[in-house]
Design a protein around this nucleic acid. Sequence first.
DNA 1: AGTGTGGTTGTAACTAGTTTCAGAAGTCAA
DNA 2: TTGACTTCTGAAACTAGTTACAACCACACT
Lengths: 340, 340
Amino acid sequence: MREFFNRKRHNVRDVAKLAGVSVATVSRVLNNADIVSKDKRARVESAIEALQFVPSSSARAINSGRTRLVGALVPTLDHAIFARYISAIEAELDTQSLSLIVATTGYDDDQELDKTQRLLNIGVEGLLVSGIARADNFTKLLSRYQIPVIATSYYDAQHALPTIGYDNAKAAQSAWDHLAGLGHKNIAILTSPVNESDRTRARLKGLEAVSTEPLRVFEAHFDYASAATATCEILEKLPDVTAFLCLSDVLAQGALLQLGKMGVKVPQDLSIIGIDDLPSSASFDPPLTSVHLPVGQMGQAAARALALWIETGQTPSPIEINSRICVRGSTRPNGRIIRE
Amino acid sequence: MREFFNRKRHNVRDVAKLAGVSVATVSRVLNNADIVSKDKRARVESAIEALQFVPSSSARAINSGRTRLVGALVPTLDHAIFARYISAIEAELDTQSLSLIVATTGYDDDQELDKTQRLLNIGVEGLLVSGIARADNFTKLLSRYQIPVIATSYYDAQHALPTIGYDNAKAAQSAWDHLAGLGHKNIAILTSPVNESDRTRARLKGLEAVSTEPLRVFEAHFDYASAATATCEILEKLPDVTAFLCLSDVLAQGALLQLGKMGVKVPQDLSIIGIDDLPSSASFDPPLTSVHLPVGQMGQAAARALALWIETGQTPSPIEINSRICVRGSTRPNGRIIRE
DNA sequence: AGTGTGGTTGTAACTAGTTTCAGAAGTCAA
DNA sequence: TTGACTTCTGAAACTAGTTACAACCACACT
C-alpha cells in the first residue's frame, strides 16, 4: 500500500549499518546529539541524509507512551464562535508542542460518540468537548480510557468533568437586565433550536428565572435567512414588541438586517441585543449591543489546563470565564414609555 | 508521566495471560474475531473487559505503517471561508476513516514551515495546503518525506503539486467584467494585504490583465473596521469612484456597512461587488453581488483526492473548481452614464 | 489403519524505535 | 604504573502490537 512512493522507508538499523555504528548510537544522535562523539555523530548524520531517513512517529510514541495529540469536539465550524474557539485552542496547544485533531459533531449525539471513539482510538492524550450534556455511552467510553477531558462553553463547578466556560444563564440574564433596565417589557426571545444545545437551554432557563411572565420564545436556525423569517414571525405575532433578545449574535445580526429591509428603525422602533459579541457585531449599523463571550480566552484557558493536566496528572479546577455586556447602538430606552 | 491515571496500561500479553491464551489469539480477537473459536473469544473478551484493555494505537500504526491522519494548513480560521473549507475537509475525511489535524499559519512562511514539520513528525499520511507559493525549505521538506500533498484555493495545472481550486484571476475578472458591463469605469479595488497571499496576488494580476488603465488599489485587513477605514480613504481620494471591487466578501460587507453609515446609497450612488460569496452576503442590505467560490465543494474534492492518493499511490490530476458570479442588489448600471 | 483436510492455536519473529547495562577506551592523579 | 574516573559505545532487552509458520486436533475418506 505505502510502497508506491519509495521502495521501503529506511529505519534506524539501515542508518546504523551505513554509518557503521550501532542502532543505539543512531537513536542517541536522534535525541540528545551531544552525548555522541562528533565524528560518529557526523557519520550518522550523513547516513541519515543519504538515506533521507525520517524516524517513525509511531515507533517513538510506542516508547514514550505519548502521542502529543489532543482532540476537540465542536458542533460545527460554520459558526464564527466555534471557529475562533478552535483557533485559540490550536494556538495555545502549539506552544505546548501538542497538535489538535478537530472533529465536528453537527449537534448530534451519535456523531459525537463516533468521533470520540475515533479520537480515542487514535490515542489522543486529552479531549475538549463543548457543553456538558451528552449520551450515557459517552461517559462510559471516557471512564474506560481514563484520559483528561475538559468541558467548555459551560461553567458548572459541580459537574463530573472540569468545566471551563461562562455561566450561560448569567450571560442571558445580563442581556435581559439591560433591556429591563431600559424599560422594555415586551421582549421577544430569539433562540437557536433549543434541543440542540445545553448552552441554549441554560440561557433560556436563566431568562425564565428572571422573567415575571412566560417568555415569548421564537426559534431560528443559525443563519441570517432563518433569523429573518423568525423576525417577520415575531412582528406579526407580537405587534407590541419593543425589544429582541437574541441568544446568539448571528440571529441578532440577521434580525437587524431584516428589520432594516422592512424599514423598522433600530433602536428607535425596536431594541436588539445579542449574545456572543462577534467581532463583526461592532461594525453593524447600528453597532450591536451584545453580551461578550470571550471564546478566545476560553479556548486558550481550556487548552492550557488540558496540557497541564496531561503533563502533571492533576485534575484542574473549573474556571469561570466572565461574560460582560457591551452596550452599543442597537438598544435604547423603551420609546413607548417616553411617549406616555 | 502517564501513570497518574492507572498504574500501568495493560497490554495484549496481560490479556493473554488472564484469558489463558496466546497473544496471537488476543490479537485475532481484536481484529477478525470470527476466526477464533467462540469459547476462547469469550474468555479473551471478558479479560479485555476485566482489565479495561485498550489497544495502543501507536503499536498498531507501527505494524500497519498507517496513522490515518491527514494535516491541513490554513492561514487562519477566523475567516469564514477557511472555516467552511476545513469543515468540508473534516466531513469528507471522516467518510474515509481519516482524521484531520488542523494547523494555522497566520499567513506566515516560518510558521507554515514549523507546523508542516510538526505534522510530518506526527506522521500524517497526506497534507492539504492553501495556495502554491511557499518557502524553498517547504519544498525540500516535502521531497524528503514524499507524502501526498495537494494545494488548494488555487488552480494551476502546471504546478509541481496537484492543485484543486479556482482560477483566482478568472474570478476577479468576472467581477470586473460584471462592473464594466454595467458601464463602470472608475472602479476602486479593495484588497486584503497583497504580500500575504498568492491568491490575492493572482486576483490582482487578473485585474491588471483586463484593465486598460492602472488599477486603483486600496489595502485593508480582513475585518469590518479596517474595511471601513479603507472605504473612507477611497471616497476621499477618488471622489468620482462609482464602484468598489472587493477581493473578499468580508471587505465588501465592511464597506457596505460603512457606506450605509455615511449615507452613501448602494447601489444607487455606488456599486459593490465581492469575491467569496459568504453565506451571510445574500442577507445584507442590499444583498451583496459576489463571485461565488465553492469552498465547501473544493474542500470535499481535495479531501477525496488526497484520500485516494494515499490509498492508491496515484497522483491525482488537478481539478478546477468553477467560480460563478451571483448578481444581487449591490450592483447596478453606472448612474453617471445614465445622467449624461 | 492411513491419509487428507480444515479449523484453531501457540511460538517466535517481525514492525521501529528507546533504554539499560556492561564494558572499552581515554584522562588524570597518586 | 596503577587505580579512579569520565566518556563513549554496542548488545540486548525493552515498548505493544501483528503475523508467518508449524503444529495440533478432529473428522472424513480411502
